[in-house]
Design a protein around this nucleic acid. Structure first.
Lengths: 196, 196
DNA sequence: CCTACCGATCGGTAGG
DNA sequence: CCTACCGATCGGTAGG
Protein backbone atom coordinates (compact mmCIF):
# COMPACT_ATOMS: atom_id res chain seq x y z
CA UNK A 1 0.00 0.00 0.00
CA UNK A 2 2.88 2.33 0.77
CA UNK A 3 4.39 1.33 -2.53
CA UNK A 4 1.21 2.04 -4.42
CA UNK A 5 1.11 5.53 -2.98
CA UNK A 6 4.71 6.23 -4.02
CA UNK A 7 4.07 4.96 -7.52
CA UNK A 8 0.97 7.12 -7.74
CA UNK A 9 2.95 10.20 -6.67
CA UNK A 10 5.65 9.45 -9.20
CA UNK A 11 3.26 9.13 -12.09
CA UNK A 12 1.67 12.41 -11.04
CA UNK A 13 5.10 14.03 -11.10
CA UNK A 14 5.76 12.48 -14.50
CA UNK A 15 2.56 14.07 -15.77
CA UNK A 16 3.66 17.48 -14.49
CA UNK A 17 7.09 17.10 -16.07
CA UNK A 18 5.55 16.10 -19.39
CA UNK A 19 3.10 19.00 -19.36
CA UNK A 20 5.97 21.27 -18.29
CA UNK A 21 8.06 20.20 -21.28
CA UNK A 22 5.21 21.07 -23.63
CA UNK A 23 4.66 24.46 -21.99
CA UNK A 24 8.37 25.36 -21.74
CA UNK A 25 8.85 24.49 -25.39
CA UNK A 26 5.91 26.62 -26.46
CA UNK A 27 6.58 29.70 -24.31
CA UNK A 28 10.18 29.40 -23.17
CA UNK A 29 11.10 28.61 -19.55
CA UNK A 30 11.14 32.25 -18.39
CA UNK A 31 7.79 33.14 -19.92
CA UNK A 32 5.95 30.00 -18.82
CA UNK A 33 4.04 30.39 -15.55
CA UNK A 34 3.15 27.79 -12.95
CA UNK A 35 -0.47 28.98 -13.17
CA UNK A 36 -0.48 28.21 -16.91
CA UNK A 37 0.98 24.80 -16.19
CA UNK A 38 -1.56 24.05 -13.46
CA UNK A 39 -4.44 25.09 -15.72
CA UNK A 40 -3.21 22.79 -18.49
CA UNK A 41 -3.32 19.91 -16.02
CA UNK A 42 -6.62 20.97 -14.48
CA UNK A 43 -5.57 21.81 -10.92
CA UNK A 44 -4.70 24.95 -8.92
CA UNK A 45 -1.13 26.31 -9.05
CA UNK A 46 -0.57 25.68 -5.34
CA UNK A 47 -1.39 22.00 -5.79
CA UNK A 48 1.60 21.51 -8.09
CA UNK A 49 3.85 21.87 -5.05
CA UNK A 50 2.57 18.63 -3.54
CA UNK A 51 4.43 16.84 -6.34
CA UNK A 52 7.39 19.05 -7.14
CA UNK A 53 9.54 21.37 -5.06
CA UNK A 54 9.95 24.21 -7.58
CA UNK A 55 9.61 25.31 -11.19
CA UNK A 56 13.31 24.62 -11.58
CA UNK A 57 12.90 21.01 -10.49
CA UNK A 58 10.68 20.41 -13.51
CA UNK A 59 13.44 21.68 -15.77
CA UNK A 60 15.97 19.50 -13.95
CA UNK A 61 13.85 16.40 -14.54
CA UNK A 62 13.48 17.21 -18.22
CA UNK A 63 17.18 17.89 -18.80
CA UNK A 64 18.53 14.88 -16.92
CA UNK A 65 15.95 12.48 -18.37
CA UNK A 66 17.17 13.47 -21.82
CA UNK A 67 20.87 13.43 -20.89
CA UNK A 68 20.55 9.94 -19.39
CA UNK A 69 18.96 8.55 -22.53
CA UNK A 70 21.72 9.91 -24.77
CA UNK A 71 24.52 8.84 -22.43
CA UNK A 72 23.13 5.31 -22.14
CA UNK A 73 22.92 5.02 -25.90
CA UNK A 74 26.48 6.32 -26.28
CA UNK A 75 27.67 3.62 -23.83
CA UNK A 76 26.10 0.96 -26.02
CA UNK A 77 27.66 2.35 -29.20
CA UNK A 78 31.13 2.61 -27.69
CA UNK A 79 31.09 -0.96 -26.40
CA UNK A 80 29.86 -2.32 -29.77
CA UNK A 81 32.13 -3.23 -32.66
CA UNK A 82 30.82 -1.19 -35.60
CA UNK A 83 33.04 0.85 -37.91
CA UNK A 84 33.27 4.58 -37.13
CA UNK A 85 30.93 5.50 -39.99
CA UNK A 86 28.39 2.93 -38.82
CA UNK A 87 28.64 4.24 -35.27
CA UNK A 88 28.04 7.80 -36.46
CA UNK A 89 25.08 6.79 -38.58
CA UNK A 90 23.57 4.90 -35.62
CA UNK A 91 24.07 7.87 -33.29
CA UNK A 92 22.58 10.20 -35.87
CA UNK A 93 19.51 8.03 -36.36
CA UNK A 94 19.08 7.84 -32.58
CA UNK A 95 19.16 11.65 -32.37
CA UNK A 96 16.61 11.95 -35.15
CA UNK A 97 14.26 9.40 -33.58
CA UNK A 98 14.55 11.08 -30.19
CA UNK A 99 13.37 14.26 -31.92
CA UNK A 100 10.23 12.43 -33.00
CA UNK A 101 9.55 10.21 -29.99
CA UNK A 102 10.48 12.70 -27.34
CA UNK A 103 10.12 15.98 -29.11
CA UNK A 104 9.21 18.43 -26.32
CA UNK A 105 11.74 17.18 -23.77
CA UNK A 106 14.64 17.05 -26.22
CA UNK A 107 14.00 20.58 -27.49
CA UNK A 108 13.58 22.02 -24.00
CA UNK A 109 16.74 20.37 -22.64
CA UNK A 110 18.70 21.72 -25.59
CA UNK A 111 17.28 25.23 -25.53
CA UNK A 112 16.54 25.97 -21.86
CA UNK A 113 19.23 24.13 -19.87
CA UNK A 114 21.01 27.39 -19.14
CA UNK A 115 18.15 28.26 -16.76
CA UNK A 116 19.17 25.37 -14.46
CA UNK A 117 20.35 26.35 -10.96
CA UNK A 118 23.64 25.19 -9.51
CA UNK A 119 24.82 22.52 -8.98
CA UNK A 120 22.65 21.13 -11.79
CA UNK A 121 23.86 23.74 -14.25
CA UNK A 122 27.53 22.72 -13.94
CA UNK A 123 26.65 19.04 -13.87
CA UNK A 124 24.60 19.26 -17.08
CA UNK A 125 27.20 21.42 -18.80
CA UNK A 126 29.89 18.84 -18.04
CA UNK A 127 27.75 15.95 -19.27
CA UNK A 128 27.06 17.82 -22.48
CA UNK A 129 30.76 18.51 -23.06
CA UNK A 130 31.69 14.89 -22.37
CA UNK A 131 29.06 13.57 -24.76
CA UNK A 132 30.43 15.73 -27.54
CA UNK A 133 34.00 14.67 -26.79
CA UNK A 134 33.02 11.01 -27.05
CA UNK A 135 31.26 11.75 -30.35
CA UNK A 136 34.31 13.65 -31.62
CA UNK A 137 36.57 10.70 -30.73
CA UNK A 138 34.54 8.47 -33.03
CA UNK A 139 34.92 10.97 -35.87
CA UNK A 140 38.65 11.22 -35.27
CA UNK A 141 38.91 7.44 -35.31
CA UNK A 142 37.13 7.48 -38.68
CA UNK A 143 39.60 10.05 -39.99
CA UNK A 144 42.59 7.96 -38.85
CA UNK A 145 41.13 4.87 -40.51
CA UNK A 146 40.63 6.83 -43.75
CA UNK A 147 36.81 6.47 -43.74
CA UNK A 148 36.17 10.15 -43.14
CA UNK A 149 37.48 13.37 -44.71
CA UNK A 150 40.18 15.31 -42.88
CA UNK A 151 37.79 17.78 -41.26
CA UNK A 152 37.74 19.41 -37.85
CA UNK A 153 35.86 16.94 -35.62
CA UNK A 154 34.27 19.50 -33.23
CA UNK A 155 32.93 21.42 -36.24
CA UNK A 156 31.44 18.22 -37.61
CA UNK A 157 29.70 17.59 -34.26
CA UNK A 158 28.33 21.12 -34.21
CA UNK A 159 27.03 20.75 -37.75
CA UNK A 160 25.43 17.36 -37.25
CA UNK A 161 23.79 17.86 -33.90
CA UNK A 162 22.26 21.19 -34.84
CA UNK A 163 21.14 19.92 -38.22
CA UNK A 164 19.06 17.33 -36.40
CA UNK A 165 17.36 20.11 -34.44
CA UNK A 166 15.92 21.25 -37.76
CA UNK A 167 13.24 18.63 -37.22
CA UNK A 168 11.81 21.07 -34.70
CA UNK A 169 10.38 23.17 -37.52
CA UNK A 170 9.14 20.20 -39.49
CA UNK A 171 5.41 19.74 -39.18
CA UNK A 172 3.87 16.31 -39.50
CA UNK A 173 0.61 17.75 -40.74
CA UNK A 174 1.83 19.84 -43.66
CA UNK A 175 4.95 17.88 -44.68
CA UNK A 176 4.82 15.92 -47.88
CA UNK A 177 7.18 13.17 -46.76
CA UNK A 178 7.01 10.65 -43.91
CA UNK A 179 9.17 10.68 -40.80
CA UNK A 180 11.20 7.77 -42.16
CA UNK A 181 11.84 9.56 -45.44
CA UNK A 182 12.90 12.66 -43.52
CA UNK A 183 15.30 10.57 -41.46
CA UNK A 184 16.83 8.94 -44.54
CA UNK A 185 17.21 12.24 -46.39
CA UNK A 186 18.93 13.82 -43.43
CA UNK A 187 21.26 10.86 -42.93
CA UNK A 188 22.21 10.85 -46.62
CA UNK A 189 23.09 14.55 -46.60
CA UNK A 190 25.17 14.40 -43.44
CA UNK A 191 26.89 11.03 -43.85
CA UNK A 192 27.85 11.80 -47.44
CA UNK A 193 29.20 15.14 -46.24
CA UNK A 194 31.56 13.28 -43.93
CA UNK A 195 32.61 10.34 -46.13
CA UNK A 196 35.85 10.49 -48.04
CA UNK B 1 18.76 70.88 -35.75
CA UNK B 2 15.55 68.88 -35.92
CA UNK B 3 17.41 66.31 -37.98
CA UNK B 4 20.23 66.13 -35.49
CA UNK B 5 17.78 65.37 -32.72
CA UNK B 6 16.12 62.59 -34.70
CA UNK B 7 19.45 61.04 -35.53
CA UNK B 8 20.46 61.22 -31.90
CA UNK B 9 17.23 59.48 -30.88
CA UNK B 10 17.72 56.80 -33.49
CA UNK B 11 21.22 55.98 -32.39
CA UNK B 12 19.95 55.80 -28.81
CA UNK B 13 17.28 53.38 -29.95
CA UNK B 14 19.91 51.37 -31.84
CA UNK B 15 21.90 51.10 -28.63
CA UNK B 16 18.85 49.79 -26.77
CA UNK B 17 18.10 47.28 -29.51
CA UNK B 18 21.69 46.06 -29.51
CA UNK B 19 21.78 45.71 -25.72
CA UNK B 20 18.36 44.05 -25.90
CA UNK B 21 19.63 41.46 -28.37
CA UNK B 22 22.50 40.59 -26.03
CA UNK B 23 20.16 40.29 -23.04
CA UNK B 24 17.42 38.34 -24.86
CA UNK B 25 20.01 35.89 -26.15
CA UNK B 26 21.48 35.36 -22.71
CA UNK B 27 18.25 35.06 -20.70
CA UNK B 28 15.51 34.43 -23.24
CA UNK B 29 12.88 37.07 -24.10
CA UNK B 30 10.44 36.04 -21.36
CA UNK B 31 13.02 35.98 -18.57
CA UNK B 32 14.77 39.22 -19.55
CA UNK B 33 13.50 42.28 -17.68
CA UNK B 34 13.43 45.91 -18.73
CA UNK B 35 15.15 46.77 -15.43
CA UNK B 36 18.05 44.44 -16.34
CA UNK B 37 18.26 46.04 -19.75
CA UNK B 38 18.23 49.57 -18.34
CA UNK B 39 20.95 48.69 -15.85
CA UNK B 40 23.16 47.29 -18.62
CA UNK B 41 22.84 50.61 -20.44
CA UNK B 42 23.26 52.69 -17.30
CA UNK B 43 19.84 54.40 -17.05
CA UNK B 44 16.58 53.84 -15.15
CA UNK B 45 13.98 51.44 -16.57
CA UNK B 46 11.43 54.23 -17.07
CA UNK B 47 13.88 56.14 -19.24
CA UNK B 48 13.90 53.38 -21.84
CA UNK B 49 10.38 54.41 -22.80
CA UNK B 50 11.58 57.73 -24.18
CA UNK B 51 13.20 55.76 -27.01
CA UNK B 52 11.00 52.71 -27.46
CA UNK B 53 7.30 52.04 -27.02
CA UNK B 54 7.48 48.60 -25.45
CA UNK B 55 9.61 45.55 -24.74
CA UNK B 56 8.03 43.95 -27.78
CA UNK B 57 9.16 46.77 -30.05
CA UNK B 58 12.77 45.85 -29.27
CA UNK B 59 12.11 42.31 -30.41
CA UNK B 60 10.40 43.61 -33.54
CA UNK B 61 13.44 45.71 -34.44
CA UNK B 62 15.77 42.75 -33.94
CA UNK B 63 13.69 40.32 -35.99
CA UNK B 64 12.99 42.62 -38.92
CA UNK B 65 16.57 43.93 -39.09
CA UNK B 66 17.72 40.36 -39.52
CA UNK B 67 14.96 39.39 -41.94
CA UNK B 68 15.71 42.41 -44.14
CA UNK B 69 19.39 41.53 -44.37
CA UNK B 70 18.66 37.95 -45.45
CA UNK B 71 15.94 38.95 -47.90
CA UNK B 72 18.16 41.57 -49.53
CA UNK B 73 20.95 39.04 -49.95
CA UNK B 74 18.54 36.50 -51.44
CA UNK B 75 17.41 39.15 -53.98
CA UNK B 76 21.01 39.59 -55.08
CA UNK B 77 21.61 35.85 -55.42
CA UNK B 78 18.43 35.27 -57.43
CA UNK B 79 19.24 38.06 -59.90
CA UNK B 80 22.82 36.83 -60.36
CA UNK B 81 23.86 34.13 -62.83
CA UNK B 82 25.66 31.54 -60.71
CA UNK B 83 25.00 27.81 -60.95
CA UNK B 84 22.64 26.38 -58.30
CA UNK B 85 25.52 24.86 -56.30
CA UNK B 86 27.38 28.18 -56.37
CA UNK B 87 24.25 30.00 -55.23
CA UNK B 88 23.79 27.60 -52.33
CA UNK B 89 27.42 27.89 -51.28
CA UNK B 90 27.17 31.69 -51.38
CA UNK B 91 23.96 31.67 -49.33
CA UNK B 92 25.51 29.27 -46.84
CA UNK B 93 28.61 31.41 -46.42
CA UNK B 94 26.39 34.45 -45.91
CA UNK B 95 24.49 32.64 -43.16
CA UNK B 96 27.72 31.60 -41.47
CA UNK B 97 29.18 35.10 -41.61
CA UNK B 98 25.98 36.61 -40.25
CA UNK B 99 26.39 34.27 -37.29
CA UNK B 100 29.77 35.82 -36.63
CA UNK B 101 29.15 39.45 -37.53
CA UNK B 102 25.69 39.72 -36.08
CA UNK B 103 25.62 36.93 -33.59
CA UNK B 104 23.17 38.14 -30.92
CA UNK B 105 20.52 39.49 -33.30
CA UNK B 106 20.54 36.45 -35.57
CA UNK B 107 20.18 34.02 -32.67
CA UNK B 108 17.41 36.05 -31.02
CA UNK B 109 15.40 36.45 -34.22
CA UNK B 110 15.63 32.70 -34.83
CA UNK B 111 14.84 31.62 -31.28
CA UNK B 112 12.47 34.26 -29.92
CA UNK B 113 10.37 35.43 -32.90
CA UNK B 114 7.38 33.49 -31.63
CA UNK B 115 7.05 36.12 -28.87
CA UNK B 116 6.22 38.81 -31.46
CA UNK B 117 2.73 40.34 -31.22
CA UNK B 118 0.35 40.50 -34.14
CA UNK B 119 0.49 41.70 -36.85
CA UNK B 120 4.29 41.34 -36.66
CA UNK B 121 4.07 37.67 -35.79
CA UNK B 122 2.19 36.76 -38.97
CA UNK B 123 4.33 39.06 -41.07
CA UNK B 124 7.57 37.53 -39.82
CA UNK B 125 6.24 34.00 -40.16
CA UNK B 126 5.32 34.65 -43.79
CA UNK B 127 8.71 36.19 -44.58
CA UNK B 128 10.41 33.17 -43.04
CA UNK B 129 8.34 30.74 -45.09
CA UNK B 130 8.96 32.67 -48.29
CA UNK B 131 12.72 32.78 -47.71
CA UNK B 132 12.81 29.01 -47.32
CA UNK B 133 10.70 28.50 -50.42
CA UNK B 134 13.09 30.61 -52.47
CA UNK B 135 16.01 28.61 -51.04
CA UNK B 136 14.22 25.34 -51.83
CA UNK B 137 13.64 26.47 -55.43
CA UNK B 138 17.38 26.84 -55.92
CA UNK B 139 17.94 23.32 -54.60
CA UNK B 140 15.24 21.94 -56.88
CA UNK B 141 16.83 23.72 -59.83
CA UNK B 142 20.12 22.03 -58.90
CA UNK B 143 18.41 18.65 -58.83
CA UNK B 144 16.84 19.21 -62.28
CA UNK B 145 20.22 20.21 -63.71
CA UNK B 146 21.81 17.07 -62.23
CA UNK B 147 24.17 18.99 -59.92
CA UNK B 148 22.48 17.84 -56.73
CA UNK B 149 21.34 14.45 -55.40
CA UNK B 150 17.63 13.59 -55.62
CA UNK B 151 16.84 14.60 -52.04
CA UNK B 152 13.81 16.29 -50.51
CA UNK B 153 14.52 20.02 -50.85
CA UNK B 154 12.67 21.19 -47.69
CA UNK B 155 14.62 18.62 -45.65
CA UNK B 156 17.87 19.91 -47.12
CA UNK B 157 16.91 23.47 -46.09
CA UNK B 158 16.09 22.32 -42.56
CA UNK B 159 19.39 20.51 -42.31
CA UNK B 160 21.53 23.33 -43.68
CA UNK B 161 20.01 26.27 -41.88
CA UNK B 162 20.02 24.57 -38.51
CA UNK B 163 23.55 23.24 -38.99
CA UNK B 164 24.69 26.84 -39.31
CA UNK B 165 23.11 27.62 -35.93
CA UNK B 166 25.68 25.27 -34.45
CA UNK B 167 28.06 28.20 -34.51
CA UNK B 168 26.10 29.47 -31.53
CA UNK B 169 27.88 26.96 -29.29
CA UNK B 170 31.28 27.59 -30.82
CA UNK B 171 33.44 29.75 -28.60
CA UNK B 172 36.10 31.96 -30.11
CA UNK B 173 38.19 31.81 -26.97
CA UNK B 174 38.48 28.05 -26.52
CA UNK B 175 38.25 26.86 -30.13
CA UNK B 176 41.36 25.58 -31.79
CA UNK B 177 40.47 26.74 -35.30
CA UNK B 178 39.81 30.18 -36.78
CA UNK B 179 36.44 31.48 -37.92
CA UNK B 180 37.51 31.05 -41.56
CA UNK B 181 38.50 27.44 -40.99
CA UNK B 182 35.20 26.78 -39.25
CA UNK B 183 33.34 28.29 -42.21
CA UNK B 184 35.27 26.17 -44.71
CA UNK B 185 34.80 22.96 -42.72
CA UNK B 186 31.09 23.55 -42.45
CA UNK B 187 30.71 24.37 -46.15
CA UNK B 188 32.66 21.24 -47.13
CA UNK B 189 30.46 18.97 -45.01
CA UNK B 190 27.19 20.42 -46.22
CA UNK B 191 27.98 21.07 -49.89
CA UNK B 192 29.50 17.60 -50.31
CA UNK B 193 26.40 16.16 -48.67
CA UNK B 194 24.29 17.73 -51.41
CA UNK B 195 26.50 17.14 -54.46
CA UNK B 196 25.85 14.20 -56.69
C1' DC C 1 -5.94 19.09 -3.75
C1' DC C 2 -7.99 23.75 -2.29
C1' DT C 3 -8.49 28.70 -0.34
C1' DA C 4 -6.13 32.43 0.97
C1' DC C 5 -2.34 34.84 0.86
C1' DC C 6 2.89 36.53 0.94
C1' DG C 7 6.75 39.55 -0.81
C1' DA C 8 8.99 40.36 -5.07
C1' DT C 9 9.08 41.73 -9.51
C1' DC C 10 7.08 42.66 -13.82
C1' DG C 11 5.93 46.15 -18.02
C1' DG C 12 4.57 50.48 -18.26
C1' DT C 13 2.72 55.57 -17.06
C1' DA C 14 2.42 60.37 -14.97
C1' DG C 15 4.56 64.27 -14.27
C1' DG C 16 8.38 66.99 -14.09
C1' DC D 1 16.45 61.18 -18.08
C1' DC D 2 14.57 60.76 -13.16
C1' DT D 3 11.32 59.90 -9.02
C1' DA D 4 7.36 57.89 -7.74
C1' DC D 5 4.15 54.88 -8.57
C1' DC D 6 0.26 51.71 -10.83
C1' DG D 7 -2.16 47.18 -11.40
C1' DA D 8 -0.98 42.62 -12.74
C1' DT D 9 1.35 38.63 -12.20
C1' DC D 10 5.00 35.92 -10.59
C1' DG D 11 6.95 31.58 -7.65
C1' DG D 12 5.96 29.80 -3.58
C1' DT D 13 3.94 28.93 1.52
C1' DA D 14 0.53 28.15 5.42
C1' DG D 15 -2.93 25.69 6.90
C1' DG D 16 -6.48 22.68 6.34
Amino acid sequence: MGKLKVSKNESRKDLIVKAGAALFREKGFGAASMRDLAENIGIEAASLYNHIRSKNEILESICFNVANRFNTHMDEIESGNMTPIEKIETLLRFHIRQMFDNFEEVIVSDREWKHLDEPYLSNFHTQRRNYRKRFASIIEEGIRKGEIKRIDAPTAILTMLHAVNGIESWHRSTAKITATELEDNMVIIIINGLKK
